[in-house]
């Protein structure tokens, strides 16, 4: 279970959010909503320990999260693309799977690619892809990197309806397997979820 206790964060002299508390049990989805600039992304970065909070803490099963726990448990997909422009799709997939210490056979990787992309030339350079395709490449990690908690920042942005359905299916499967998901999104999910509004 993830517990967020009285979390506050400030950037310079401006307070981004104050005294945020909620918890997420295994098998739950928490959708963080709020207007632009209210600190949704900052809250996610605080949860995964990429930013240090002003006050409060984040606990996983009662233990304070350190960098080792964060890298063992969290898969974070942010708004921006992380793939290398000069590499092909194939090379990017291989690179990021090696970074996440994941080893799969070509067959499994190709199946996952086919599920998300349909037919796609894997020898294309990353910069040749459209915004949606770039986003899909990141979301491919959801299928291949096995970590118990997914932290997703606006995962549906730029995706077509068909892909949104596929991603929602992936989220549903994750919940079935008792994983936890925290999503910052303006969109409503079609699977059972709780909401936390940042005001």
């Amino acid at each position: 279970m993830i517990e967020i206790n009285n979390l506050s964060f400030a950037r310079g002299n401006s307070l981004i959010f104050k005294d945020i508390s909620f918890s997420i049990k295994p098998g739950e989805v928490m959708v963080i909503q709020g207007p632009n600039g209210k600190g949704k992304t900052t809250l996610l970065l605080n949860i995964i320990q990429l930013l240090d909070p002003l006050n409060g803490d984040v606990r996983l099963n009662g233990q304070k999260i350190d960098s080792q726990t964060a890298s063992d448990c969290f898969l974070y997909l942010g708004e921006n693309h992380f793939a290398y422009d000069q590499m092909t799709l194939n090379q990017n997939i291989d690179y990021w799977l090696s970074i996440h210490n994941v080893e799969f056979t070509k067959e499994i990787i190709n199946k996952s690619i086919k599920y998300l992309f349909g037919e796609l030339n894997l020898d294309k350079k990353f910069y040749q892809l459209s915004f949606g395709q770039k986003k899909k490449l990141q979301l491919l990690l959801l299928m291949l990197v096995n970590k118990p908690i997914w932290i997703l920042d606006d995962p549906f942005n730029g995706l077509d309806n068909n892909t949104i359905k596929k991603i929602t299916t992936l989220l549903a499967k994750k919940i079935e397997n008792k994983g936890s998901i925290i999503i910052a999104s303006h969109q409503d999910l079609s699977i059972p979820h709780r909401k936390f509004k940042l005001t």
């Binding site: 970065l45 995964i48 990429l50 960098s67 964060a70 890298s71 063992d72 969290f74 898969l75 974070y76 942010g78 708004e79 921006n80 693309h81 992380f82 290398y84 990021w96 970074i99 996440h100 210490n101």
Partner: peptide, 15 residues
């Protein structure tokens, strides 16, 4: 290579 998005992945990687 250490743009924000890449760095986030590197920090959360097992390496």
């Amino acid at each position: 290579d250490f743009s924000e998005a890449k760095l986030q992945q590197y920090i959360l990687s097992p390496f």
